[in-house]
Nucleic acid binder design. Sequence first.
DNA 1: CAAATTCATCATATCATTGTGATAAAACAA
DNA 2: TTGTTTTATCACAATGATATGATGAATTTG
Lengths: 136, 136
Amino acid sequence: MILSQTARYALRALAYLADRDVGEPVRVDVIAEDLDVPRNYLSKILHALAKSGVLVSMRGPRGGFQLARPAEEVRLADVVGEFDTMEASNACLMGQERCADANPCAAHEGWKVVKNRVEEFLRDTTLAQLRSPPDG
Amino acid sequence: MILSQTARYALRALAYLADRDVGEPVRVDVIAEDLDVPRNYLSKILHALAKSGVLVSMRGPRGGFQLARPAEEVRLADVVGEFDTMEASNACLMGQERCADANPCAAHEGWKVVKNRVEEFLRDTTLAQLRSPPDG
DNA sequence: CAAATTCATCATATCATTGTGATAAAACAA
DNA sequence: TTGTTTTATCACAATGATATGATGAATTTG
């Protein structure tokens, strides 16, 4: 419910990179092993994030992946939206057909509010907030 | 995002039955055609809802499906939970591994609140609130 | 009891998501 | 330029969600 496996992998990999915060790229193999995520699958995910501008990728020796900008400037919605469809928040709980904003059922507005909460959270939260806490 | 196709079909079929509110069962064929949902697929969904006690099914002529209790007494969570996994609300945004309640990242508590909102909505809302508005 | 009606179920098809294995292409270093 | 390292990509497998078609089983009606 809510987030796909792919989106969760993406967030974990990015949080991992935000944690390390080193000025040099990290190899897919390292990330995949540390996070226990399938290597080639992760490779595709990171590639997509590079194409969308969240990551920078570099090939060859001393290559790997690196955040393209500070963790504070990467919204979770930028990441999740790449993999999961962030449907319009005016959509009906039961699908598009039954009720719309024009002719809503009693639950329509309440559902809209709840869904907006999810989307607001993803828009307002950044990668920096996914970092591991200092001590633990 | 959020609800599966199956769960949405289920809610639509139940809302449809709540709308009709007749004291007699409605055939799958009728529901499937009116809602434009695959017949046999819907049949399985309604069967599952009958097994879980939300619907009553009756075979033979004048058979069909009927709400087992008043729409006011069917919580959306009863329906959705039958098809979608309502995961524990203390689960991490990125999957179970990264942070738990014991050692949370900065976003952990916020996400928990948002997820609770979704679950509360499904628990607090009933089928009666999915009925079509009187006029439309 | 026989026939019709309806849900129940089985077998299978399609599609998207998730995952694997092999190879190509780029970058670097000797 | 040759070899090594790394991402990029291709081909495909496994799984689960969604969907279809055919048949079985229960119930009612005549």
